[in-house]
Nucleic acid binder design. Structure first.
Length: 367
RNA sequence: GUGGCUGUAGCUCAAUUGGUAGAGUGUCGGACUGUGGAUCCGAAUGUUGUGGGUUCAAGCCCCACCAGCCACC
């Protein structure tokens, strides 16, 4: 892996990430395909919508189809016929989001499969093994992502644990053609955020994730944490803000120096009729769009917006037609990849501040 | 034609011995951020087929009518 920042505008950066399966221009949005597919979007559509890299998930792929199948195909690229870079999340987030059936200790995480109730144990080493089998271009270490509301003491303990896990992950990682990212945590305590960032970034990872944000806290808190953390991160390595896909928050993150982001929100929302537009989010199910002949976003140049009306997609989504979900998903992915591309262009021109202000004002005005 | 059953929210149905109607679904909004096409939250909706009667009180009891279904001639 090679990463270079080609241009900077304040703290915002335009960069280029070179991976075995392709070059990724940053800032970048990465659509999420947990099970080896972006829901409602074929590989062709994903690429067509502008995605340069996609996410998958060690936790889910390990459960199904399982390592045997992945091994027999020689990894996710061959299995899913994905010829673009793939990043796999470790499953750390699942500890948090599926915590009812999990038990965490210093050794690792024991959990019951939500699919069949079987018991499994993830350790930092196991999660590396899984991701090496998957063969993703970028692997993430196992971390512990706490829910908001944890006190200082338990968060501190969690930060220590995440650091220890990071060391173990580094030691067990063998594939030279796979990059490994560490993940910083720290809840909503500035000191712990600093501590975690210092510890994790002192280790020889290829890049660094910022975890545990956008998990229910308000946006001011998120931004405060970013303000604390980003200046402490190495200039020469990519920074990945995990789980953020709100346009405004993405722009705020880019302004502070974030290079990569992923989120299920745009694709999940699309399936329920949530459409991202340049003048804010709309719910296409609303009866106001029943007879609307205009495109989802009049300012969008994507294929869906050039072809279909709001009224038609309103009808399809309300009827649960997968075609409606497919069209909405395509548009939302296009919208975010396009927003990233525009951000990049603005950074290169040295106009990111103005660009961000313009976009955010437009989104806020219409609502 | 005769006998029986049924008629309650758009739909499918609840409502202990008569005490002034609820649920699911659908509809209309909203939430969702390292993926549940999942889920959650909020809202609206009925002169209980029609017309009478009994009763302090009727979706429940009585009568007539209407509609649908079943059975038998």
């Amino acid at each position: 892996m090679r990463f270079e920042t080609t241009r900077r505008n304040g703290y915002a950066r335009a960069g280029k990430l070179t991976l075995d399966h392709g070059i990724v221009e940053t800032p970048v949005f990465m659509p999420v395909g947990t099970n080896g597919a972006i829901k409602m979007c074929s590989r062709e559509c994903v690429k067509d919508a502008g995605a340069q890299i996609v996410l998958s998930n060690a936790f889910h792929l390990y459960l199904k189809p399982g390592l045997d199948v992945l091994r027999s195909f020689g990894g996710i690229h061959n299995f899913a016929s994905w010829d673009i870079p793939v990043l796999t999340d470790s499953g750390g987030f699942q500890i948090f989001s599926l915590s009812k059936n999990m038990h965490v200790d210093d050794e690792g995480v024991e959990f019951k499969s939500p699919l069949d109730g079987s018991v499994h144990k993830f350790t930092p080493e196991k999660v590396i093994e899984i991701q090496e089998t998957i063969g993703s271009d970028i692997a993430m270490v196992l971390d512990e992502c706490l829910a908001p509301g944890n006190d200082l003491e338990s968060t501190k303990k969690s930060v220590k644990r995440t650091s220890k896990w990071a060391e173990r992950a580094l030691k067990s990682h063998t594939r030279k053609d796979q990059s490994l990212f560490g993940i910083t945590q720290g809840g909503f305590f500035e000191d712990l955020r600093r501590e975690s960032t210092a510890e994790i970034t002192s280790m020889p990872f290829d890049g660094f994730g910022i975890g545990g944000l956008s998990v229910g806290e308000d946006i001011d808190t998120t931004l405060r944490m970013l303000d604390v953390v980003l200046p402490l991160m190495p200039e020469n390595k990519p920074r990945y803000l995990m789980g953020v896909g709100d346009p405004i928050l993405m722009l705020e993150a880019i302004e502070r120096g974030v290079d990569m982001m992923d989120c299920v929100l745009p694709t999940r929302m699309a399936r329920h009729g949530g459409i991202l537009t340049s003048s804010g989010r709309i719910n296409i199910r609303a009866s106001a769009y029943e007879k609307d002949p205009t495109p989802l976003d009049p300012e969008c140049n994507c294929k869906v917006c050039k072809t279909y009306s709001r009224g038609y997609i309103h009808h399809l989504i309300k009827r649960g037609e997968s075609t409606g979900m497919i069209l909405a998903t395509y548009h939302n992915i296009y919208f975010l990849t396009n927003l990233m591309k525009q951000s990049r262009d603005a950074i290169i021109k040295g106009e990111f501040g103005e660009f961000k202000k313009f976009v955010i004002e437009k989104i806020n005005n219409k609502r």
